[in-house]
């Protein structure tokens, strides 16, 4: 979709102040870029998903309806030639603000290629990898920065929830949510955790003790161990902990009824999940992928499929906005439940 049509779709001149998540991420931009983005109409800011800085290239914004560039005058433009070009000092300053001038304290994060800001916003980085003994030690000469705005959408999981409830055991099914990037997996999982933790009386679901392994601090957005996002009254969060180790720790320490974690994908994650299944604890997990066939062909997930424990597979997409439930499958029969209307 072109930028012009994007403009037509947006209501103009709404008086509401910029939403808080955007204000949170704007702090990490140099002042002149901060004011460029902040002068956009509130309706555009409300749809902002990403801010992409690439050195010596146009400043790009990811919006719900598509990508656009930002001009030096602070207007959305479709032509990259008219866009503001990101300079080396812009990049340096952004890195310093993202890291709080403490790059040394974020070596592990750099190795993984992203840093999580207070509030659970993720900043992805690429540059020159420094390899030591065959493994990435850190990144240097950062060339691209992608700042992703994380939003809470209370009620996003409400249409999906009836299909995930095991009424016989008054709990939730083992559920795996998958989608390509930027389809709202984390946002949906966060709302799912909140609702399962608080309980849903209409669906006769009592509140469950939920343990969350939040390896990248995106789900709960913890600051010094305290969740900054609403993840429910009965939720315990293990922040910044590797998923596999964290799930085992939660099992031992917090007696959870449900364990939730984001973006599994390594063999050790699946091994830890197996332990969780055997302990009689339900799981809510997400994974990157665009079809069941694709998931089943991934080596680490093949074992998970062979266990036949997952009871619900949920595919998300953007066909009717971020977080659209495209399809739900029964995990045992792998037949679609035909609930596209969620």
């Amino acid at each position: 979709m072109g930028t012009a049509s994007l403009f037509r779709m947006l209501p103009s001149g709404r008086p509401d102040p910029p939403p808080d998540p955007v204000a949170e991420v704007l702090h990490v931009l140099p002042p002149h870029l901060r004011s460029l983005v902040a002068t956009l109409p509130p309706a555009v800011l409300g749809q902002l998903e990403e801010i992409r800085l690439r050195q010596d290239r146009p400043l790009a914004l990811g919006l719900v309806q598509g990508d656009a560039f930002l001009s030096p005058a602070g207007c959305l433009v479709g032509d990259p030639e008219q866009a503001y070009r990101v300079t080396a000092p812009d990049m340096e300053r952004t890195i310093q603000l993202v890291t709080g001038s403490s790059l040394y304290a974020l070596e592990e994060e750099l190795r993984n290629g992203f840093i999580t800001l207070p509030g659970g916003h993720r900043v992805g980085l690429t540059g020159k990898a420094v390899v030591e003994g065959g493994r990435v030690r850190t990144l240097k000469h950062i060339g691209s920065i992608n700042i992703r705005v994380s939003r809470e959408v209370p009620g996003l999981a409400t249409p999906l929830l009836p299909h995930l409830i095991d009424r016989r055991h008054r709990t939730v099914y083992h559920t795996l949510i998958f989608s390509p990037p930027r389809c709202g997996k984390t946002t949906l999982l966060r709302d799912l955790i909140r609702q399962v933790s608080n309980g849903v009386p209409e669906l006769e679901l009592p509140g469950q003790r939920v343990g969350v392994v939040d390896e990248r601090s995106e789900l709960a957005g913890c600051y010094r161990g305290i969740p900054q996002r609403d993840v429910g009254a009965r939720t315990d969060v293990l922040d910044g902990c590797p998923k596999a180790e964290g799930m085992t720790m939660l099992l031992r320490s917090m007696a959870p009824q449900v364990i939730a974690t984001d973006e599994i994908g390594r063999a050790e994650d699946v091994a830890a999940l197996e332990e969780v299944f055997h302990a009689g604890v339900r799981v809510l997990v997400t994974v990157h992928g665009s079809s069941l066939r694709e998931l089943a062909s991934r080596p680490a997930l093949q074992h998970l499929f062979s266990l036949k424990v997952i009871q619900r597979f949920v595919l998300l997409g953007r066909s009717r906005g971020v977080g659209t439930v495209e399809e739900i499958w029964d995990g045992q029969t792998l037949s679609p439940l035909g609930v596209r209307a969620c």
Partner: peptide, 10 residues
């Protein structure tokens, strides 16, 4: 130079 490199460098 403070804060912009690895622990060893700092």
């Amino acid at each position: 130079v403070l804060g912009i490199s690895s622990t060893g460098d700092q």
